[in-house]
Simulated assay, not measured.
Amino acid sequence: MKGLKLVVIVLVLVAIGGGLWWYWRYSTLYPSTQDAYVQAHVVTVTAEVTGKVTAVHVTENQRVTAGDPLFDLDDTVYKNAVTQAQAQVEAASEAMGSYTKQIEAASALLESATIANDAAQSQLGRVQRLFNDGSAAQASLDQARSAAAQTESGLRAAQAQQAQARAALVANRDTLVSAQAALQTAQLNLDRTKVTSPVDGWVSNITLREGTVVTAYAPLFSMVDNGEWWVDANFKETDLPRITEGQPVTITIDMLPGTTLTGKVGSIGRGSGSTFALLPAENASGNWVKVTQRFPVRIELGSTDPGLRVGASTSVRVDTTGSTN
């Protein structure tokens, strides 16, 4: 009887030892953690211009697609700015035609003055030669000199007029460019009074109401982007040597019983969670106790949204036995 009891005890101890060894081996090959949470990009919605809210088109937790209207702002001031800018552009455009005609007139006047000056200079040269030969009187020479001086003065005046017309055209061209830029800015601000969804996702934490005056770029509410989902899992530092990028991962989600997702290790954090905390832990030398640190491991999900929620608790298990992808 005693021998039978001894055999039973030995078998029980062997079973317990075998079970412990199997659990240790399984934990080594398949490191897991329950310190893991579903994540997605959260986009902060703001207005890009200041104004009073005239309409809100969405409600809390509403699903929207990119480009769907979210809310509108009073656009009266911005419409007036567009009208004013359009008037400035039209005025500058009309002035361009006027200055172009002035340049054409100044160019014609310059051409006429140049011809007259050339003729007067030629006449002066002939009279000068005749005077030197004694065939022309001093009065004829003086008259030719006076005519040449007048035409030269007229030529300079025509040149100055043409230069002035060209300068005015350049200045007006700058004015037109500035007016066109002001019109584009005014139109852009007018368009921004209609705020649309930047992504596909869900409206979250919205308290915006009609009549509220919002300031440009002030946070108003959030949107959960449905474009990409992942899991941030915090593994013990003793597990990290066996975890590499690309290893397959199995994920179970507490809020979705019976649902199992698959994924792979996307990246491993370069710092522990406490490293980036607002107030990192400081261990005094007198009572220091070694604590196993945890490092964030990003898990890329291999399936699309099965009803996921940001921040949902999950359990993650990494398969370190297979090859990486």
Rank of each mutant, 00 (worst) to 15 (best):
T59D: 00
G311S: 02
L190D: 11
G307V: 02
N283K: 11
L6A: 10
D72K: 03
F235W: 03
P257A: 01
T114P: 00
A281W: 11
S197K: 07
L256K: 11
L176H: 13
G307L: 03
A47H: 07
G201P: 06
D118M: 08
A163R: 07
Q162W: 10
I103K: 07
V170G: 07
S135Y: 14
A113D: 09
L141E: 10
W202C: 04
R25Y: 12
L188P: 08
L183T: 12
P198R: 06
P296Q: 00
I206F: 11
G311C: 04
L29A: 15
T238M: 08
P241V: 08
K2I: 03
T212L: 01
G311M: 01
D319S: 01
S93M: 08
G307I: 03
A277F: 06
G67Q: 04
R173E: 08
L29V: 12
N205H: 14
Q123T: 14
L141H: 12
T28Q: 14
Y23I: 12
S272L: 04
V56M: 00
P219E: 13
W288V: 08
S32Y: 15
R129I: 11
A95S: 15
G201S: 07
V89S: 10
A165N: 09
L130Q: 13
S323R: 15
Q123Y: 14
E282N: 10
T46L: 10
A95P: 15
